[in-house]
Design a protein around this nucleic acid. Structure first.
Length: 555
RNA sequence: AGACCUAUGGUGUAAUCGGCAACACGUCAGAUUUUGGUUCUGAAAUUCUAGGUUCGAGUCCUAGUAGGUCUACCA
């Protein structure tokens, strides 16, 4: 299967295969480098799958490295949630769990080395002044008045920065590169800043912290990462990434950029996700509408379906917007094979089968999954009064309506064929009760009636029905790209119908007994997962994704 | 506009390095079906523009156009 599948390589695999062919003893070593300041989302999943997947494909390794160089925003709590999410997705860093903060001492020595090479200096300019010195993309910058301090003075000042002699913001260490470079990142970038704050791992040991550009590439190098895969917005950082490595003369890791994942009707910026949570637009980081890994997990997405999705979206360098339909396809494809079927009626209306005795109960055999013979079967109770879906009956149906209506015939799934001969309407003209007769010789599996029924309905015996709460989720945004319009806040495109709660749907007994986290296909409806909010009295089911529906009420 | 990057059906991604533009999702139609699910078959739909090189260009060259990124003591 994998033989015929991967005839074509993505551009990163091409680079790797070329390296492998040309360099003897070459190893593939990647890393996944989250900053522990937020929850992982679907975009991170792409990066995780890429980094771990490519290492696995070429017999290499992947490190987990927390990019924790900013004590202001980072917390241990996030470290734990990130590790949980990666494991849940199905990847293992095999104990290679590192932290940029582990390298603070080495980084400090690296900085001293650059000072000695006259490639770094302590700058007393304020951040405003530094910003001013930078110039603009179209005009060159100007050099800082502190740029030509002596090596001795720089070394002294830098050590005193570390010793805590100076206030936050009063001094920084800068690389001495080129204030006229067309690349803004090369205009004497800041390497270290003073922050007298406790770090989640190093505590108060440090009051100077390295910037991303002076930490990330060096960490890659220390770990001898051969391929440092990151997203496109770091393209302009690559010359600086390379400059530091060359100036320091350390292991030459290589940064390769690929396009980040964008999925329609979702946002993935940390700031916007935070806004959704803090603004109360969702119920938390694991709200089933959130594109976070925690949200997708609670929504019912399987790890396998997310991995398949990440594989299908591909790796390239052009900006993209993946349709959510692809994600939905991936989870349906998975769940079709694995989810047990069950019957639940979301909007019930009562059917009375007049030629069944009121006391009669028959337990019918129902297969759990037609796609999987090993899934076995269960018993479903059938009796005189049942519920069917309100939308499965129509007073005056259109031409190709296969369901029930006056004087119509349908099959009840796993049971008998029934014929509707009477009904009651309420004041609003909606059906309130349906009266039928059944054909005793039409039982599923041993039908000798010869009667043909075009439609098959799901149903639940009224006296055995369990009440369940069902939560229907739809896209959080009404627009495919809620951040597209720069004049409008993305919150304006929040979908008011992203959550619909059905407080009292009815379900067959097996559903109420299922453990939290079990997934089902509600026949003819969709895939659902039992939510952690469930109680004994009130089981709760989240809609994962609806079944495809080629009917959709077409006329 | 200064630099860097990108441009292939509606959406993504390929095209064995110059040789009949394909795969997936989506859409539409049909078949099968005791889930209007699944499965199967078929259809519509693609190389940003203009020149050039070549027997032959999605691929090479030139010039445009469009989009993205960059001016944090964030990552």
């Amino acid at each position: 299967m994998e033989e015929s599948k991967k005839l074509s390589l993505n551009f990163i695999e091409e680079i790797i295969e070329q390296d492998l062919a040309e360099k003897t003893g070459w190893k593939v070593h990647t890393r996944f480098p989250p900053e522990p300041n937020g929850y992982l989302h679907i975009g991170h999943a792409k990066s995780i799958c890429l980094n771990f997947g490519i290492a696995e494909k070429y017999g290499g390794l992947t490190n987990l490295r927390f990019d924790d160089t900013n004590p202001t925003t980072e917390e241990t709590e996030y470290v734990e949630s990130i590790k949980k999410d990666i494991r849940w997705l199905g990847f293992d860093w095999e104990g290679r769990e590192f932290y940029a903060s582990d390298y603070f001492e080495i980084l400090y020595e690296y900085a001293q080395k650059l000072i000695r090479k006259r490639l770094a200096y302590v700058d007393d300019s304020t951040s405003d002044e530094i910003a001013e010195q930078k110039g603009s993309p179209t005009s060159s910058g100007i050099e800082s008045p502190y740029r030509n301090r002596s090596v001795e003075e720089n070394l002294d000042l830098f050590s005193r920065m570390r010793a805590g002699e100076f206030e936050d913001g009063s001094k920084v260490l800068r690389a001495k590169i080129d204030m006229a470079s067309p690349n803004m990142h090369l205009r004497d970038p800041v390497m270290y800043r003073i922050k007298k704050e406790s770090h989640h791992r190093t505590g108060d040991a440090w009051c100077i912290y390295p910037m991303y550009d002076f930490a990330h590439g060096q960490s890659d190098s220390i770990e001898e990462i051969t391929y440092s895969l990151c997203t496109l917005e770091f393209e302009n950082h690559r010359p600086l990434y390379d400059w530091y490595i060359e100036a320091l003369d350390i292991f030459p890791s290589r940064q390769i950029e690929f396009a980040r994942l964008n999925v329609s009707h979702m946002v993935t910026s940390k700031r916007k996700l935070l806004q959704l949570v803090e603004g109360g637009h969702v119920k938390g980081w694991d709200d089933p509408r959130m594109p976070t890994i925690a949200g997708l997990r609670r929504r019912g997405y399987t790890p396998a379906s997310i991995r398949t999705f990440c594989d299908k979206v591909g790796i390239a360098k052009r900006e993209n917007l993946i349709e959510m339909a692809l994600l939905e396809f991936c989870v349906r494809e998975d769940l079709n094979q694995t989810a047990s079927r069950a019957m639940a009626v979301l909007d019930p209306v009562k059917v009375i089968i007049e030629n069944i005795d009121p006391e009669h109960v028959e337990w019918l055999k129902a297969e759990n999954n037609p796609e999987d013979p090993d899934a076995g079967s269960r018993e479903v109770p059938f009796s005189r009064e049942i519920f069917i879906e309100r939308s499965d009956w129509m007073l005056d149906p259109p031409k190709k309506y296969f369901r029930l209506g006056p004087d119509r015939t349908v099959r009840l799934k796993h049971a008998y064929i029934i014929h509707c001969h009477d009904h009651k309407l309420n004041a609003n003209g909606n059906v309130s009760e349906i009266r039928c007769t059944y054909y005793p010789d039409s039982k599923s599996g041993s039908d000798t009636s010869g009667i043909k029924a075009k439609g098959t309905l799901h149903w639940v015996s009224t006296s055995h029905a369990r009440s369940v709460e069902v939560r229907h989720y739809h896209t959080l945004f009404t627009e495919p790209e809620p951040t597209r319009d720069e004049d409008k806040d993305f919150l304006e495109f929040l979908n008011p119908d992203s959550l619909t709660v059905i407080p009292s749907a009815v379900a067959e007994p097996a559903l109420a007994a299922a453990p939290v986290g079990s997934r089902f296909q509600f026949l003819r409806k969709g895939y659902y997962i039992k939510d952690q909010d469930s109680t004994d009295d009130c089981p709760v089911f989240n809609l994962i994704v609806e079944l495809r529906d080629s009917w959709k009420g077409k006329k």
